[in-house]
Design a protein around this nucleic acid. Structure first.
Lengths: 156, 156
DNA sequence: CTTCGTGCAAAGCGTTTGCAATAAA
DNA sequence: TTTATTGCAAACGCTTTGCACGAAG
Protein backbone atom coordinates (compact mmCIF):
# COMPACT_ATOMS: atom_id res chain seq x y z
CA UNK A 1 0.00 0.00 0.00
CA UNK A 2 1.40 3.32 -1.07
CA UNK A 3 1.12 6.35 1.11
CA UNK A 4 -0.40 9.47 -0.32
CA UNK A 5 -1.01 12.91 1.05
CA UNK A 6 -2.94 15.79 -0.38
CA UNK A 7 -1.00 19.00 -0.40
CA UNK A 8 -2.02 21.98 1.71
CA UNK A 9 -2.26 25.19 -0.27
CA UNK A 10 -0.95 28.50 1.04
CA UNK A 11 -2.76 31.82 0.79
CA UNK A 12 -2.79 33.09 -2.80
CA UNK A 13 -1.70 36.62 -1.83
CA UNK A 14 1.33 35.28 -0.02
CA UNK A 15 2.30 33.23 -3.04
CA UNK A 16 1.82 36.21 -5.34
CA UNK A 17 4.08 38.45 -3.25
CA UNK A 18 6.67 35.72 -3.12
CA UNK A 19 6.64 35.37 -6.88
CA UNK A 20 6.94 39.09 -7.47
CA UNK A 21 9.90 39.16 -5.14
CA UNK A 22 11.47 36.25 -7.01
CA UNK A 23 11.00 38.09 -10.29
CA UNK A 24 12.65 41.17 -8.81
CA UNK A 25 15.52 39.07 -7.48
CA UNK A 26 16.05 37.61 -10.94
CA UNK A 27 16.33 41.07 -12.45
CA UNK A 28 12.84 41.19 -13.93
CA UNK A 29 10.67 44.22 -13.29
CA UNK A 30 7.54 43.70 -11.27
CA UNK A 31 5.17 45.49 -13.62
CA UNK A 32 1.43 45.82 -13.41
CA UNK A 33 0.95 43.29 -16.18
CA UNK A 34 3.10 40.72 -14.44
CA UNK A 35 1.36 41.38 -11.16
CA UNK A 36 -1.97 40.60 -12.76
CA UNK A 37 -0.75 37.31 -14.22
CA UNK A 38 0.96 36.33 -10.99
CA UNK A 39 -2.10 36.99 -8.84
CA UNK A 40 -4.38 35.05 -11.16
CA UNK A 41 -2.20 31.97 -11.43
CA UNK A 42 -1.26 31.99 -7.75
CA UNK A 43 -4.91 32.18 -6.79
CA UNK A 44 -6.20 29.52 -9.14
CA UNK A 45 -7.15 26.06 -7.98
CA UNK A 46 -6.97 24.57 -11.44
CA UNK A 47 -4.75 24.75 -14.46
CA UNK A 48 -5.43 27.84 -16.55
CA UNK A 49 -4.83 28.31 -20.23
CA UNK A 50 -3.04 31.45 -21.41
CA UNK A 51 -6.30 32.63 -22.96
CA UNK A 52 -8.18 32.25 -19.68
CA UNK A 53 -5.45 34.06 -17.80
CA UNK A 54 -5.57 36.79 -20.39
CA UNK A 55 -9.34 37.16 -20.09
CA UNK A 56 -9.12 37.46 -16.32
CA UNK A 57 -6.13 39.79 -16.49
CA UNK A 58 -7.96 42.19 -18.79
CA UNK A 59 -10.43 42.87 -16.02
CA UNK A 60 -7.57 44.44 -14.07
CA UNK A 61 -5.36 45.66 -16.89
CA UNK A 62 -7.67 46.29 -19.86
CA UNK A 63 -4.79 46.96 -22.23
CA UNK A 64 -2.85 43.79 -21.45
CA UNK A 65 -2.12 41.64 -24.48
CA UNK A 66 -2.15 37.88 -24.76
CA UNK A 67 1.49 37.97 -25.75
CA UNK A 68 2.43 39.60 -22.48
CA UNK A 69 0.70 36.80 -20.63
CA UNK A 70 2.77 34.26 -22.53
CA UNK A 71 5.94 36.15 -21.74
CA UNK A 72 5.10 36.48 -18.06
CA UNK A 73 4.39 32.75 -17.85
CA UNK A 74 7.68 32.09 -19.57
CA UNK A 75 9.52 33.94 -16.80
CA UNK A 76 7.55 32.22 -14.06
CA UNK A 77 8.26 28.85 -15.57
CA UNK A 78 11.94 29.68 -15.89
CA UNK A 79 12.04 30.51 -12.18
CA UNK A 80 10.18 27.27 -11.47
CA UNK A 81 7.30 29.09 -9.84
CA UNK A 82 4.69 27.70 -12.17
CA UNK A 83 4.55 24.48 -14.08
CA UNK A 84 3.11 23.90 -17.48
CA UNK A 85 1.06 20.85 -18.30
CA UNK A 86 -0.13 19.54 -21.62
CA UNK A 87 -3.88 19.44 -21.94
CA UNK A 88 -5.72 16.84 -24.01
CA UNK A 89 -6.52 19.36 -26.74
CA UNK A 90 -2.87 20.19 -27.24
CA UNK A 91 -2.87 23.56 -25.52
CA UNK A 92 -1.15 24.27 -22.22
CA UNK A 93 -2.35 24.82 -18.70
CA UNK A 94 -0.34 26.70 -16.13
CA UNK A 95 -0.44 26.31 -12.40
CA UNK A 96 1.57 27.00 -9.28
CA UNK A 97 4.47 24.68 -8.73
CA UNK A 98 4.83 23.65 -5.13
CA UNK A 99 8.03 22.54 -3.56
CA UNK A 100 9.03 18.92 -3.73
CA UNK A 101 8.11 16.22 -6.15
CA UNK A 102 4.41 16.16 -6.66
CA UNK A 103 1.82 14.70 -8.94
CA UNK A 104 -1.55 15.74 -10.17
CA UNK A 105 -5.08 14.54 -10.05
CA UNK A 106 -7.21 16.43 -12.54
CA UNK A 107 -10.93 16.49 -13.21
CA UNK A 108 -11.79 15.68 -16.80
CA UNK A 109 -15.01 17.68 -16.56
CA UNK A 110 -14.07 20.98 -14.92
CA UNK A 111 -10.28 21.01 -15.03
CA UNK A 112 -9.87 21.27 -11.27
CA UNK A 113 -6.45 20.06 -10.17
CA UNK A 114 -5.42 18.56 -6.86
CA UNK A 115 -1.86 17.77 -5.96
CA UNK A 116 -0.53 14.91 -3.97
CA UNK A 117 2.82 13.60 -2.97
CA UNK A 118 4.05 10.51 -1.26
CA UNK A 119 4.13 8.06 -4.13
CA UNK A 120 7.01 5.69 -3.85
CA UNK A 121 8.12 4.52 -7.22
CA UNK A 122 11.74 3.88 -6.31
CA UNK A 123 11.32 0.11 -6.33
CA UNK A 124 9.75 0.21 -9.76
CA UNK A 125 12.47 2.54 -11.01
CA UNK A 126 15.22 0.25 -9.82
CA UNK A 127 13.61 -2.81 -11.37
CA UNK A 128 13.07 -1.05 -14.67
CA UNK A 129 16.62 0.21 -14.82
CA UNK A 130 17.94 -3.31 -14.29
CA UNK A 131 15.67 -4.83 -16.92
CA UNK A 132 15.85 -2.18 -19.61
CA UNK A 133 19.37 -0.82 -19.31
CA UNK A 134 17.95 2.71 -19.16
CA UNK A 135 19.15 5.27 -16.70
CA UNK A 136 15.88 6.74 -15.52
CA UNK A 137 15.96 10.46 -14.85
CA UNK A 138 12.39 11.43 -14.29
CA UNK A 139 8.85 10.20 -14.22
CA UNK A 140 5.43 11.67 -14.52
CA UNK A 141 2.39 10.26 -12.84
CA UNK A 142 -0.99 11.75 -13.50
CA UNK A 143 -4.47 10.69 -12.55
CA UNK A 144 -7.69 11.68 -14.20
CA UNK A 145 -11.24 11.36 -13.04
CA UNK A 146 -14.25 13.29 -11.88
CA UNK A 147 -14.11 15.55 -8.84
CA UNK A 148 -16.86 15.27 -6.24
CA UNK A 149 -18.91 18.17 -7.64
CA UNK A 150 -18.79 16.99 -11.23
CA UNK A 151 -19.53 13.47 -10.13
CA UNK A 152 -22.67 14.66 -8.33
CA UNK A 153 -23.68 16.81 -11.30
CA UNK A 154 -23.27 13.84 -13.63
CA UNK A 155 -25.55 11.71 -11.48
CA UNK A 156 -28.32 14.31 -11.67
CA UNK B 1 8.57 -3.47 -4.05
CA UNK B 2 6.60 -3.24 -7.22
CA UNK B 3 6.85 -5.88 -9.91
CA UNK B 4 7.64 -4.83 -13.44
CA UNK B 5 8.01 -6.70 -16.68
CA UNK B 6 9.23 -5.54 -20.03
CA UNK B 7 6.95 -6.34 -22.88
CA UNK B 8 7.93 -8.62 -25.71
CA UNK B 9 7.38 -7.14 -29.16
CA UNK B 10 5.91 -9.15 -32.03
CA UNK B 11 7.11 -9.12 -35.63
CA UNK B 12 6.22 -5.87 -37.40
CA UNK B 13 4.83 -7.58 -40.50
CA UNK B 14 2.48 -9.67 -38.41
CA UNK B 15 1.22 -6.58 -36.64
CA UNK B 16 0.75 -4.75 -39.92
CA UNK B 17 -1.34 -7.56 -41.41
CA UNK B 18 -3.39 -7.71 -38.26
CA UNK B 19 -4.10 -4.00 -38.42
CA UNK B 20 -5.08 -4.11 -42.07
CA UNK B 21 -7.46 -6.93 -41.27
CA UNK B 22 -8.91 -4.92 -38.39
CA UNK B 23 -9.44 -1.95 -40.71
CA UNK B 24 -11.19 -4.20 -43.20
CA UNK B 25 -13.36 -5.66 -40.46
CA UNK B 26 -14.37 -2.18 -39.39
CA UNK B 27 -15.50 -1.35 -42.91
CA UNK B 28 -12.46 0.70 -43.87
CA UNK B 29 -10.73 0.00 -47.13
CA UNK B 30 -7.17 -1.32 -46.95
CA UNK B 31 -5.66 1.09 -49.46
CA UNK B 32 -2.05 1.53 -50.44
CA UNK B 33 -1.79 4.72 -48.44
CA UNK B 34 -3.06 3.08 -45.31
CA UNK B 35 -0.82 0.11 -45.83
CA UNK B 36 2.17 2.40 -45.92
CA UNK B 37 1.20 4.13 -42.68
CA UNK B 38 0.38 0.86 -40.98
CA UNK B 39 3.68 -0.77 -41.90
CA UNK B 40 5.69 2.21 -40.76
CA UNK B 41 4.02 2.59 -37.39
CA UNK B 42 3.88 -1.15 -36.74
CA UNK B 43 7.57 -1.46 -37.49
CA UNK B 44 8.74 1.50 -35.45
CA UNK B 45 10.43 1.09 -32.10
CA UNK B 46 9.80 4.66 -31.07
CA UNK B 47 6.99 7.17 -31.24
CA UNK B 48 6.72 8.82 -34.63
CA UNK B 49 5.30 12.22 -35.47
CA UNK B 50 2.84 12.50 -38.34
CA UNK B 51 5.46 14.42 -40.31
CA UNK B 52 8.02 11.67 -39.84
CA UNK B 53 5.52 9.02 -40.86
CA UNK B 54 4.65 11.09 -43.90
CA UNK B 55 8.29 11.46 -44.90
CA UNK B 56 8.82 7.70 -44.66
CA UNK B 57 5.54 6.92 -46.39
CA UNK B 58 6.45 9.08 -49.37
CA UNK B 59 9.31 6.74 -50.12
CA UNK B 60 6.70 4.06 -50.85
CA UNK B 61 3.80 6.17 -52.02
CA UNK B 62 5.30 9.37 -53.45
CA UNK B 63 1.91 11.02 -53.88
CA UNK B 64 0.70 10.45 -50.34
CA UNK B 65 -0.30 13.60 -48.52
CA UNK B 66 0.27 14.51 -44.90
CA UNK B 67 -3.48 14.78 -44.42
CA UNK B 68 -3.93 11.16 -45.41
CA UNK B 69 -1.44 10.17 -42.75
CA UNK B 70 -3.44 12.06 -40.14
CA UNK B 71 -6.64 10.38 -41.26
CA UNK B 72 -5.10 6.93 -41.28
CA UNK B 73 -3.78 7.47 -37.75
CA UNK B 74 -7.24 8.65 -36.71
CA UNK B 75 -8.72 5.33 -37.79
CA UNK B 76 -5.97 3.31 -36.15
CA UNK B 77 -6.43 5.21 -32.93
CA UNK B 78 -10.18 4.71 -33.08
CA UNK B 79 -9.64 0.96 -33.39
CA UNK B 80 -7.17 1.15 -30.50
CA UNK B 81 -4.35 -0.21 -32.61
CA UNK B 82 -2.10 2.76 -32.04
CA UNK B 83 -1.85 5.16 -29.19
CA UNK B 84 -1.10 8.83 -29.35
CA UNK B 85 1.19 10.50 -26.89
CA UNK B 86 1.82 14.16 -26.26
CA UNK B 87 5.38 15.18 -26.92
CA UNK B 88 7.15 17.94 -25.01
CA UNK B 89 6.96 20.31 -27.97
CA UNK B 90 3.18 20.02 -28.18
CA UNK B 91 3.02 17.78 -31.21
CA UNK B 92 1.95 14.15 -31.15
CA UNK B 93 3.76 10.88 -31.42
CA UNK B 94 2.09 7.67 -32.54
CA UNK B 95 3.03 4.13 -31.68
CA UNK B 96 1.63 0.65 -31.56
CA UNK B 97 -0.71 -0.03 -28.70
CA UNK B 98 -0.20 -3.41 -27.14
CA UNK B 99 -2.85 -5.28 -25.29
CA UNK B 100 -3.38 -4.63 -21.63
CA UNK B 101 -2.58 -1.65 -19.51
CA UNK B 102 0.95 -0.58 -20.17
CA UNK B 103 3.29 2.26 -19.51
CA UNK B 104 6.22 3.74 -21.28
CA UNK B 105 9.84 4.34 -20.70
CA UNK B 106 11.27 6.68 -23.29
CA UNK B 107 14.77 7.81 -24.09
CA UNK B 108 15.16 11.58 -24.04
CA UNK B 109 18.05 11.40 -26.47
CA UNK B 110 16.94 9.07 -29.25
CA UNK B 111 13.20 8.71 -28.69
CA UNK B 112 13.34 4.95 -28.30
CA UNK B 113 10.35 3.64 -26.36
CA UNK B 114 10.14 0.58 -24.18
CA UNK B 115 6.92 -0.68 -22.67
CA UNK B 116 6.37 -2.25 -19.34
CA UNK B 117 3.48 -3.48 -17.32
CA UNK B 118 3.05 -4.72 -13.81
CA UNK B 119 2.78 -1.48 -11.92
CA UNK B 120 0.34 -1.70 -9.07
CA UNK B 121 -1.13 1.66 -8.30
CA UNK B 122 -4.42 0.38 -6.93
CA UNK B 123 -3.52 1.18 -3.34
CA UNK B 124 -2.56 4.71 -4.26
CA UNK B 125 -5.74 5.12 -6.30
CA UNK B 126 -7.93 4.00 -3.41
CA UNK B 127 -6.19 6.30 -0.96
CA UNK B 128 -6.45 9.26 -3.31
CA UNK B 129 -10.13 8.67 -3.97
CA UNK B 130 -10.85 8.65 -0.26
CA UNK B 131 -8.88 11.80 0.41
CA UNK B 132 -9.86 13.88 -2.57
CA UNK B 133 -13.43 12.86 -3.28
CA UNK B 134 -12.48 12.23 -6.89
CA UNK B 135 -13.60 9.17 -8.79
CA UNK B 136 -10.41 8.20 -10.58
CA UNK B 137 -10.88 6.83 -14.07
CA UNK B 138 -7.42 6.62 -15.51
CA UNK B 139 -3.80 7.28 -14.88
CA UNK B 140 -0.71 7.74 -16.91
CA UNK B 141 2.72 6.81 -15.77
CA UNK B 142 5.69 7.63 -17.88
CA UNK B 143 9.41 7.38 -17.26
CA UNK B 144 12.14 9.24 -19.03
CA UNK B 145 15.82 8.65 -19.13
CA UNK B 146 18.68 7.54 -21.31
CA UNK B 147 18.72 4.17 -22.99
CA UNK B 148 21.85 2.06 -22.74
CA UNK B 149 23.20 3.12 -26.15
CA UNK B 150 22.69 6.83 -25.58
CA UNK B 151 24.09 6.51 -22.11
CA UNK B 152 27.26 4.96 -23.50
CA UNK B 153 27.47 7.57 -26.24
CA UNK B 154 27.11 10.34 -23.68
CA UNK B 155 29.99 8.94 -21.63
CA UNK B 156 32.27 9.02 -24.66
C1' DC C 1 19.48 57.98 -20.69
C1' DT C 2 19.67 53.22 -21.01
C1' DT C 3 17.46 49.05 -20.57
C1' DC C 4 13.61 46.30 -20.18
C1' DG C 5 8.71 45.53 -21.04
C1' DT C 6 4.61 46.19 -23.75
C1' DG C 7 1.20 45.85 -27.48
C1' DC C 8 0.24 45.16 -32.11
C1' DA C 9 0.58 42.72 -36.25
C1' DA C 10 2.35 39.13 -38.70
C1' DA C 11 4.43 34.81 -39.12
C1' DG C 12 5.07 29.88 -37.75
C1' DC C 13 3.65 25.38 -36.69
C1' DG C 14 0.77 21.36 -36.11
C1' DT C 15 -3.69 20.02 -37.10
C1' DT C 16 -8.41 20.06 -39.21
C1' DT C 17 -11.85 20.95 -42.73
C1' DG C 18 -14.08 21.70 -47.50
C1' DC C 19 -14.20 20.03 -51.81
C1' DA C 20 -13.53 18.10 -56.30
C1' DA C 21 -11.01 14.26 -58.33
C1' DT C 22 -10.00 9.38 -57.77
C1' DA C 23 -10.08 4.59 -56.47
C1' DA C 24 -12.30 0.72 -54.27
C1' DA C 25 -16.43 -2.27 -53.68
C1' DT D 1 -22.71 3.03 -59.84
C1' DT D 2 -22.34 3.92 -55.23
C1' DT D 3 -19.49 4.95 -51.56
C1' DA D 4 -15.20 5.61 -49.36
C1' DT D 5 -10.74 7.77 -49.86
C1' DT D 6 -7.43 10.83 -51.52
C1' DG D 7 -4.78 15.19 -52.28
C1' DC D 8 -4.69 20.00 -52.45
C1' DA D 9 -5.53 24.35 -50.55
C1' DA D 10 -7.32 26.96 -47.20
C1' DA D 11 -8.74 27.63 -42.55
C1' DC D 12 -7.95 27.15 -37.74
C1' DG D 13 -6.06 27.66 -32.95
C1' DC D 14 -2.12 28.11 -30.16
C1' DT D 15 2.27 30.04 -29.76
C1' DT D 16 6.31 32.81 -31.13
C1' DT D 17 8.74 36.64 -33.26
C1' DG D 18 9.85 41.50 -35.10
C1' DC D 19 9.48 45.97 -34.17
C1' DA D 20 8.42 50.59 -32.60
C1' DC D 21 6.39 52.78 -28.57
C1' DG D 22 6.29 53.29 -23.67
C1' DA D 23 7.66 52.61 -18.92
C1' DA D 24 11.01 51.46 -15.25
C1' DG D 25 15.50 51.93 -13.20
Amino acid sequence: MVDSRLVAVRAPQAIAEEWLEALRAAGYRPTAARRAVVEIVAGASNALRPQEIHAQAKRRQPKIGLVTVYRALEKLEELELVQCLHLPDGSHGYLAEFSGHQHLLSCTACGRVVYFEGDDLSGLVTALEAESGFRIDSHSLQFEGLCAQCHAREAA
